[in-house]
């Protein structure tokens, strides 16, 4: 080191211990805290939509129930399972990082990518169905069966929220896929070890967060008063 004042503090700088930290543990804690603060801003970002949803469902409960029942609950439930599986493989990738198993990190990241891809594929099929059924808000041909004319606009509100919320969620998934692809390339270079796997760790936090958003979206969008239709 050129700067002699640094030599006392940290003899050699490494990925696991940058000069500005006292210990590797402190660096790890700081990375995790930073990611959590970002996730809190994400909670507020999605929170606005959940607030809008709460207001409109409160105003038009019957319309929301009928519109919700037009969604495919079985596909939604299967997709929830797929996303939960991807969260499991993601946490296994982080565990492989903790143990310094470089090959297992890559294997579990690829599995996570796979399940994430299946989720997005199923979502695309569901969205396509909405187009075929004329359940797209703003469409001149918009018509939801079982509702009077004056309620069609309120049904469009439901589908606006449906597309905005699942769309924003899917956008986060696409970004997550990009992050995991980057991680796989980095892991192939062998830069992750038991001492340093922070990128895998914080990407895991992000992936699980996106999973938690879906955990709320699924019952709120797909499962409103399903018994009414039977």
């Amino acid at each position: 080191m050129a700067d002699h004042s640094l030599t006392n503090h940290a003899q050699t700088e490494s990925l696991a211990l940058r000069v500005q930290f006292d210990t590797a543990a402190q660096q790890k804690d700081a990375s995790q805290l930073g990611m959590w603060i970002f996730l809190i801003t994400e909670i507020m970002f999605f929170g606005g939509m959940f607030a809008a949803y709460t207001v409109y469902r409160n105003w038009y409960p019957e319309v929301f129930a009928i519109a919700s029942s037009s969604l495919n609950a079985v596909l939604g439930a299967i997709n929830t399972g797929v996303l939960l599986l991807s969260s499991f493989t993601m946490v296994m990738a982080v565990r492989a990082g903790q143990l310094g198993q470089q090959k297992m990190i890559i294997i579990f990241l690829i599995l996570t990518l796979l399940f994430g891809g299946v989720f997005l594929g199923v979502k695309a099929i569901e969205w396509k169905e909405k187009f075929d059924e004329h359940h797209i808000p703003g469409q001149a041909a918009f018509h939801l069966e079982g509702l009077k004319d004056y309620d069609q606009g309120h049904a469009q509100l439901f589908f606006s929220l449906y597309f905005a919320m699942t769309g924003l969620h899917a956008l986060h998934m696409v970004i997550g896929v990009g992050i995991i692809l980057t991680l796989i390339m980095q892991a192939k270079k062998g830069i992750y070890s038991a001492d340093y796997y922070t990128p895998v760790d914080v990407a895991g936090l992000y992936w699980h967060f996106v999973d938690v958003i879906w955990i709320f979206l699924f019952p709120l969008l797909y499962l409103i008063d399903r018994h009414l239709g039977k």
Binding site: D29, Q32, L33, W36, I37, L39, I43, M44, G47, A51
Partner: peptide, 19 residues
Amino acid sequence: TRLTKLVVVGGLMWLMILL
């Protein structure tokens, strides 16, 4: 860490205020 736990709970509190 306790700090992280505090941040998580604090974030949920803000969400509850919003809703």
